[in-house]
Amino acid sequence: MKTIQIVKYQIQQAKIALMIYYAIIFVIAIMLVSTMSRAGLKASENVYLGGLDFASMIFILVLGLTSFKESYYFMQANNITRKGFYKGHLLSIFSIAAFMSFLDIIINLILNTFSEYNTVFSQIYLRNNSMTVSTAFMNFIWSFSLLTLIAMIGYFIAIVYYRSNTVMKIVVSVAPFVLINVLGYLNSITDGAIGNAVNYFNTWMWGLQNGYHPYFASINIFAAFIIFGVFSYLLIRKAPIK
């Protein structure tokens, strides 16, 4: 198997984007810290920073959206099987998501030394922002599973667009808006039953039923990753060169 070469290629393709992204995040972090220190604000004064890792979620979604066609074509130029290509893609997603999750936690720890900084994870699951080894590990697992899921959703959307003809592309683009409106309408005629069901599902999905359960959430997120992953593979399995 040429898996190592495929992973190497895919990571190499993402490398420059990752470097630019973290350079921007680094600059933003420095600006935040310097603004805080110039203003003489401290964590004890109820000034909070947070959510930079939300940018990582957007970044990896865009990476997922853009990482299919060009890589697929190049792998086809080199007669790589679709199975091999997909396997390589999965491993590269895991590597990039792990790297980003780790770096986001490091950024969190650094920013926390200057002011109170809350990651998305700590805002959802931690009552205080005391980052211990076990909460950092919990944060890593949760971020890792979430980033892999988001990357896979982006990838799945890219493949759906690739496999669709013009009419299907329009249908796929319009479908989310139609679905939201239909659900909104159904919600209004069912006295909020749809909204309640969505809320219930969200609470369960994110491990917020009867307390805070980030590991349970990670399992659910990973299950969603597998679902999108299976659909993506089914679409790739016989994807022609257009």
């Binding site: 040429k2 393709q13 060009e70 074509y73 190049f74 086809q76 130029a77 007669n79 790589i80 099987t81 060169i241």
Partner: peptide, 15 residues
């Protein structure tokens, strides 16, 4: 498949 190199009419290389 690794025994074949195919010079495709289509350009499959990263632009």
């Amino acid at each position: 498949l690794s025994q074949i190199y195919y010079m495709s009419e289509k350009n499959l290389y990263p632009e």
